[in-house]
Computed example of a mutant assay.
Amino acid sequence: MKLSAELQAFQRRIGHEFTRPDLLVRALTHGSVSSQTRPDNQRLEFLGDRVLGLVMATALLERDKSASEGQLAPRFNALVRKETCADVARDIDLGAVLKLGRSEMLSGGRRKQALLGDAIEAVIAAVYKDGGFEAAQAMILRLWGKRIDLVDADARDPKTALQEWAQARGETPPAYVELERSGPDHAPVFTMAARLQSGTEARASAKSKRLAEQRAAAMLLQQLEDDA
């Protein structure tokens, strides 16, 4: 099977050239467009989730040799949760190559967190089956990149931390306001503001609203800490 130019470009983005291109095609095939002769990516997703978990658990153990299980668990969860997987998928524009049925495509399937998260796990499994564990491990570590190094010591969501800060001072929970959306429909960039009752705010941009909100909350927390 010869891959299209679009899929060849995707191979370059993930850093793996398939010897069995059918695996990549299957990993990118959603159930809305599957058939008896075109299987969907659900079985690969199941496998990829386990491969991702093993790679992340190993990376975290090697990164912090003194951490307890209680410290490692929330870091692990932060790195493998569906939101993080979807953010990684957006980084490599996976949505642009997803094979979707018409109804799913019209409902914005290329941007859906669940679909993107499932698909990146399926791609991980495809690389694992095509090139073995080391190939899958190398790709995961490359795509997750600084997320592993920067995962918070207790993997605490900055939005939760900011809300707790506001509540401790008798303020209403912070508001998150979309300021701008740019880029193509399949790969939008959102600019969000995290805003306190006092009017103090911080702004950040990302490829998903959730990530932009988290970044803005983290920036606002840092600003409040600096001003303290």
Rank of each mutant, 00 (worst) to 15 (best):
S4Y: 11
L7N: 03
R12N: 03
I14K: 00
H16S: 09
E17S: 13
D22Y: 11
L23I: 10
L28R: 09
L28Q: 06
H30W: 08
G31I: 11
S35N: 10
Q36F: 10
R43N: 09
L44T: 01
F46T: 10
G48K: 04
A57H: 05
E62F: 06
G70H: 13
R90N: 09
D91W: 03
I92P: 00
L98R: 08
G101K: 11
R102D: 12
S103G: 01
S103E: 12
M105N: 04
S107M: 12
Q113A: 09
Q113M: 15
L115P: 02
A119S: 14
A119R: 02
E121Q: 15
A126F: 05
A126H: 03
L141Y: 02
L141V: 01
K146Q: 15
D149W: 15
L150M: 09
L162W: 05
E164D: 12
W165F: 15
A175H: 08
L179Y: 09
H186C: 11
F190D: 03
L196I: 13
Q197N: 07
S198K: 06
G199A: 09
T200F: 04
T200S: 05
E201Q: 12
A204V: 06
A206W: 02
E213M: 03
M219R: 15
L220D: 01
L220C: 02
Q222D: 11
Q222A: 14
L224I: 07
